[in-house]
Design a protein around this nucleic acid. Structure first.
Lengths: 103, 103
DNA sequence: CGGATGATACGACGATCATCGAACTTTGTG
DNA sequence: CACAAAGTTCGATGATCGTCGTATCATCCG
């Protein structure tokens, strides 16, 4: 179970996306993800929370289709699926990320 | 508690808005609200769910700042605060409502 | 006044959530 | 091999959620 393959673009569910983005920690992660062009390991995001909580948040983001992940050495890299989200829900990510900083 | 006055435009919280919109029933209500220009009583929305559940959903929408309500006789009218939401989170409502019908 | 109508308040229920710590796995490095 | 580093898994906990039924309140109309 809980495989790492990203879900199809067409199957990205709006409810899941909105729910994923409704959490400030996850929105923070998405914002950092969107800002940094180069992939970074999971551990470099949202340093205020525990490892297990971070794992949980990344799973929510991944299962919602917002993020794609792959392993690289001992680290796990993440990439914001901005193209897919933009294609499926045009303007959504821009408006969420463009709002007052983590407002 | 639980007063009916709408919250200030500047205090509309993105987390609350996204959470409110993450529920399909509430998104359905918002979509109907956005479609019908004339105010309609609460009871005319989302007929599939119970009265108490509908009251609950309208409270979530109101406390998130998405909806304004006022009494009119025995009915309670609702209005989508599109101007305020658009001002605070430009493009958000459009992108959510513009997605595949209640997708 | 007495119904009828539209909506809220009040539990209550099962489900999900965010968070944590401790144990474990995987990978790289000495 | 042994150790360290990065993530995951596995409960557990307290909070919140969506839904419901019933009781209650407010308002209108006869």
């Amino acid at each position: 179970m809980t495989f790492d393959d990203p879900i199809d673009r067409g199957e990205i569910d709006l409810s899941a996306v909105l729910h994923a983005l409704s959490d400030p920690q996850r929105r923070q992660i998405v914002a950092e993800l969107a800002a940094s062009e180069l992939p970074r390991p999971c551990g470099s995001y949202a340093p205020a929370i525990t490892k297990s909580t971070r794992t949980h948040h990344f799973r929510v983001l991944r299962e919602a289709g917002l993020v794609e992940q792959w392993k690289e050495g001992t680290s796990k890299m993440s990439r914001l699926r901005r193209d897919d989200i933009d294609a499926r829900f045009p303007g959504l990510l821009d408006s969420v990320l463009g709002s007052t900083p983590v407002g």
